[in-house]
Design a protein around this nucleic acid. Structure first.
Lengths: 334, 334
DNA sequence: TTGAGTATAGCAAACGTTTTCGCAAATGTC
DNA sequence: GACATTTGCGAAAACGTTTGCTATACTCAA
């Protein structure tokens, strides 16, 4: 039984239209009345019912954020970016994690539509995003992709250049003198993994090298990096360097390599991609390619809010951010 | 211009009450009509407007989650716990991070009330929670605290026993033979930090020891642990062991200790509290006291949903979870 | 045939706002 | 002092649902 505008109206002996206007500082209302009503509202402990407001204004002031895995330290940082920008602009964010499952993604998409979020920021679980497009091509709700650059030219997104990430990392390894470089990937149908792998392959090619190790895929989890590496090391042809699809994987790779009795970087160099915060921890000192994680989130939030504010402008905005090589101590020259 | 119940009613040539009932499988509607209407709804791409529904049912099927810092790997895990439980029960969660700032906490609390969330799970930024209580003592919206056990006997919460965390950790160190044990804390007015510190002090006392090092406080950040430790090491009286208020701090502590030229654990043992996922990484192998993080989130979600479902039952439910000592390799006996 | 009972479906109010339109009183203009 | 303009406010519709009550048309027993 919370206090509504009508209660205030009754108490102030005015119509509830007046209360509504007074509270939103409408110029039609006299200063005196405004003051009176505002005081009353405060005293009575009034909180506007945004649900009711949304019904008529068709704006919920909330944006949906769909990410695969909040447990991978990469995502909290982008979440942080969107949340803080959203907060500063009066929006709140609905957190949805898909656990890389497309059916969860679909269900959340539906739920967000039902909940009338004003916009959606999504890091898609897999490469195929047709279900997202189709869910929103009616298109009153703006969508921006993060960590993913869709082929569809009409989609807005902000992502770092994954191809370049893979390329840069591999190139660095090549420059260090490595020729036997393996790639340990995450989810096979993840687009960023695919592009990183592409970059890796092209870098090899640019040095006249063929793929020597068949690409390995699992999940974007430390455990997966660990297991895939174990598997990799079974064979005699041990690489001098391993590029992991991301930092979390790289941690697993290191663990497996050292458990195998090899030293990092002495015997095998290991590189990650992402630059999660623990990569810089001295005991780890993971050489990696950094993505501007918080910035990705911030930009995405900025774009989505701008899109919300000018719904007529349907032109997609695309931001591709530059990765940055971070040299630490898990790679050595040979 | 999305399709509404009225559109379907028009198309089906029935009243919109019928449509509403058909879609919610009300027994009053014939199977035939239901089938027809459901098909129509699907074909027309109908998505219920939950906003409108909420206005009348007074349930938004969303719960607010307020945490201090999504960037500290501790919190994503509890977030994960609540989110997945919520998802399974048809709820979605509104993510609010306060960055340990009480004014953000207040503003979010207000926003959540406005947005009519059905319940709130909150890890308070600081010890004083009067603003939370006062905001919700009207009390139709259930609140459960996590990571925090309020003094107020009417509050529901789920938390691990922070006092015991501190005690256990310190006791372990004492058993290893350490007598000069320093404590590096986080936020000074954080209740969990305070209780952990209490546990630490009591453990010392149980061994007949006084506080030897004045308690140090900063933030719950790696950098803070690093800086405080640097400061601690300035003095001649270097401890043989350092207990950090949490794992993230501990990482900073280790960094500072080693940078100072001391070995962990050879010269100084370091302990954390929380057992964040990276603590188990081989290169770190942080000895710590584990909290069941995901479980905390899950339980909190379970409790809040149960409370939402039986609003008449106001009895607080309190879960205090047991910490678990995790012995790894940053502590040695002396 | 009548009356009660049951299966379906419609009417209209309600949820708490915002907003369009209109109207009366106050003020300004000559 | 007559008219136009401004100021301040109220009436009521609208947003998209759900739901209590009512209404119709059957069925079936007496």
């Amino acid at each position: 039984m919370s206090v509504t505008i009508k209660d205030i109206a009754k108490a102030a002996n005015v119509s509830y239209a007046t209360v509504s206007r007074a509270l939103s500082d409408h110029p039609d209302i006299s200063e005196e009345t405004k003051k009176k009503i505002k005081k009353l509202a405060k005293d009575m402990g009034y909180t506007p019912n945004i649900i009711a407001r949304s019904l008529i204004t068709k704006a919920t002031k909330t944006i949906g954020l769909i990410i695969p895995d909040i447990t991978n330290p990469f995502f909290p940082e982008v979440a942080q970016g969107v949340e803080s920008y959203a907060y500063d602009n009066g929006y709140t964010v609905l957190l949805c994690t898909t656990n890389w499952q497309i059916d969860r993604e679909k269900r959340y998409l539906k739920a967000l539509r039902s909940k009338m979020v004003d916009g959606i920021i999504i890091a898609p679980a897999i490469d195929d995003i047709s279900h997202i497009i189709s869910n929103f091509n009616g298109g009153d709700t703006p969508v921006v992709f993060v960590t993913y650059s869709p082929d569809d030219p009409d989609c807005s997104f902000v992502a770092t250049d994954d191809y370049k990430c893979g390329f840069m990392a591999t190139e660095y390894l090549l420059k260090l003198g490595h020729r036997n470089i393996a790639y340990i990937g995450g989810l096979e149908n993840s687009s960023s993994d695919r592009r990183r792998f592409e970059g890796y392959r092209e870098a090899l090619k640019s040095y006249g090298l063929q793929l020597r190790y068949s690409p390995m895929h699992g999940q974007f989890k430390q455990m997966s990096g660990y297991e895939l590496t174990k598997e990799l090391l079974i064979y005699n042809d041990i690489p001098t360097a391993i590029l992991a699809g991301n930092d979390v994987l790289a941690l697993g790779v290191i663990q497996a390599v050292e458990e195998f009795g090899l030293k990092v970087p002495d015997s095998v160099s290991v590189m990650g991609i992402d630059d999660i915060s623990f990569a810089s921890f001295d005991k780890i000192s993971l050489t990696t390619v950094a993505q501007p994680k918080v910035k990705i989130g911030q930009l995405a939030a900025e774009i989505i809010i701008q899109k919300i504010n000018s719904p007529q402008d349907k032109t997609p905005v695309k931001k591709v951010l530059e990765p940055r090589l971070i040299i630490r101590r898990t790679c050595r020259s040979i």
